[in-house]
């Protein structure tokens, strides 16, 4: 079985976000970039399935500018076998990404597609579900556990009230939640080895799909700042303030 793992390059989660003064977006020049944390979990899960003998090949895909090659290399260093880079300078919407991924799916015919539940830049939480719709595959979103049993996958999902387990036919799409696994760090020898692994380069035009934007960002602004309040010295002072000043207890 082949596993496809789309990975996204995003601003590192520990970087402070700065909104551009012209309100067109957030500052990305000279900002540290990383693989989206949920994508790292997806790569890790694919590798664990391969290590458990459930999969033979892992293909990491990234769609974006030239630097996305680094993100694919990170996935290869963790243990993916080869990469596909769809080069574009445009920032594509989840629908467009899902369309390209659906075409790659048709070519590669994987048994499983594992991807992050959301990217921490746009916070959209859409691409996996959209890809599943376009390929007509069942979806196990926000997964905290995946068990492959023959032609089906048992997926435990993180839902608002607790956990839900569903059984889906394979091929299937699984999107990863936080507790699915803890991604490994790539070792130095594996980073070296990853440099020799192949990355196939494509362009959106190669897939013959409409990737034109449907949404226009009119402006991006900073959120209203919350003012820091006061420090209290004791529990009794805190309780007094909450009762008499704030009136919330």
């Amino acid at each position: 079985m082949k596993i496809l793992v789309p990975v996204k390059r995003v601003i590192d989660p520990y970087v402070n976000i700065r909104v551009k003064s012209d309100q067109t977006g957030v500052e990305t020049d000279n900002v540290k970039m990383s693989m989206n944390p949920f994508c790292e979990i997806a790569v890790e899960e694919a590798i664990r399935l391969k290590e458990a003998g459930k999969a033979e090949e892992i293909i990491a895909i990234s769609i974006g500018d030239q630097k996305c090659q680094e993100t694919i290399r990170t996935a290869l260093a963790m243990g993916a076998d080869r990469g596909i880079h769809v080069l574009t300078e445009e920032v594509l919407e989840p629908l467009a990404l899902a369309k390209i991924l659906a075409k790659i799916y048709e070519e590669e015919k994987p048994g499983l597609v594992v991807m992050g539940k959301q990217a921490i830049d746009g916070d959209n939480n859409q691409t996996g579900q959209m890809f599943a719709a376009l390929t007509d595959l069942p979806q196990g979103t926000f997964a905290s556990k995946i068990d492959i049993e023959g032609e089906q996958a048992l997926v435990t999902r993180e839902v608002d009230g607790g956990l839900q387990t569903i059984k889906i036919n394979m091929p299937a799409v699984v999107t990863t939640d936080l507790r699915l696994n803890e991604p490994r760090y790539a070792s130095l020898p594996n980073i070296m080895k990853a440099k020799k692994k192949p990355i196939d380069q494509k362009a959106p035009e190669d897939f013959g799909v409409d990737v034109s934007p449907r949404l226009k960002v009119l402006k991006v602004v900073e959120p209203p700042k919350r003012q820091a309040g006061i420090k209290v010295d004791s529990v009794s002072e805190l309780v007094e303030k909450l009762k008499n000043e704030a009136g919330v207890i």
Binding site: I17, V26, D121, L218, P223
Partner: peptide, 18 residues
């Protein structure tokens, strides 16, 4: 035209759909 947060609420985007 709708308003939504991006980057964990560190930015607020106004988005128009066609």
């Amino acid at each position: 035209t709708f308003i939504r947060t991006i980057y964990a609420g560190n930015a607020i985007a106004t988005v128009q759909s066609s």
